[in-house]
Amino acid sequence: MEIIKGAGAWAPPQAGDWTEHLRTPDLSVGTYCIPAGGADGQSPHTEDEIYVVTAGRARIVTPGAAAEVGPGAVIFVPAGEEHRFTDVTEDLALLVVFGPAYGSRGA
């Protein structure tokens, strides 16, 4: 067992905006933060992904749908699907889980 301290907590974004807290071959867990008014510059990932909104408000947009999200929202994005957080009205903090681990499938 391991307690993952700080996962999902708001912190001013650093280079890359993503902080990985835990990595095993089958999954990785981290935090992704976007400040209010900020832009989400991510590209589609090669792994399935779950976001849990821990703070803030925004809109998530994919080619097939869009939705307003806030604290408690849980979002599943399948591998390869384009997605972006837009209209970030409050500092957005996301607990992110990748399966398998982020980047492990290559491009």
Rank of each mutant, 00 (worst) to 15 (best):
P78Q: 07
H45Q: 10
I60M: 00
R84Y: 15
P63S: 00
P35I: 13
E49D: 09
G80R: 13
E49G: 07
H83V: 11
I34K: 01
R57P: 03
D40T: 13
T54W: 06
G38M: 09
I34T: 08
D40H: 12
A73P: 08
G56L: 09
G64D: 14
T46F: 10
C33E: 08
E47Q: 07
P78A: 08
F85G: 01
I75Q: 05
V52K: 01
V61N: 00
I34E: 04
V61M: 02
A36K: 12
A66G: 06
E49R: 05
P78E: 06
T46I: 04
D40S: 09
P35E: 11
G64N: 10
V61T: 11
V53L: 01
V74R: 00
C33K: 03
V69C: 02
R57E: 13
R57M: 06
G30M: 11
G70N: 06
S43H: 14
T31M: 02
V77K: 00
G72Q: 05
A66F: 14
G70K: 04
E81R: 11
T62M: 01
D48C: 06
D40K: 05
A58T: 13
F76L: 01
P63Y: 11
T31S: 08
S43Y: 12
V77G: 04
A73M: 05
R84S: 13
G41D: 15
H83N: 08
Y51F: 14
G70C: 05
V53C: 02
C33A: 07
A55D: 13
G37N: 09
G30Y: 15
G38R: 08
V77Q: 01
R84C: 14
E82C: 04
R59Q: 08
A79K: 10
G38H: 14
V69L: 02
P44G: 05
E49H: 10
V53T: 03
F76I: 10
E49I: 11
P71V: 12
R84L: 12
D48S: 07
Q42Y: 15
T46H: 07
P78K: 02
H83S: 02
R57K: 10
A55Y: 11
P71H: 05
H83E: 08
Y32E: 02
S43W: 15
R59Y: 10
E47C: 03
T31E: 05
A58Y: 14
H45Y: 14
A58Q: 11
E47R: 01
A66I: 09
A67Y: 14
V61H: 01
V74A: 08
V69Y: 10
G41L: 13
G70W: 07
H83L: 04
E47P: 08
G30W: 14
G38K: 09
T62K: 00
V61Y: 03
R84T: 15
G56H: 12
G64Y: 11
G41I: 15
A39P: 06
G80H: 13
E68C: 00
V74Q: 02
I34Y: 10
P63E: 08
F85R: 00
G80F: 13
G38E: 12
I75R: 02
R57N: 06
E68S: 04
Y32M: 06
Y51M: 03
V61S: 01
G64F: 12
P35M: 07
P71D: 10
H83C: 09
I34R: 01
P44Q: 03
I34F: 09
A58G: 02
I34Q: 02
T31I: 09
R59S: 06
D40V: 13
V61G: 00
P35D: 05
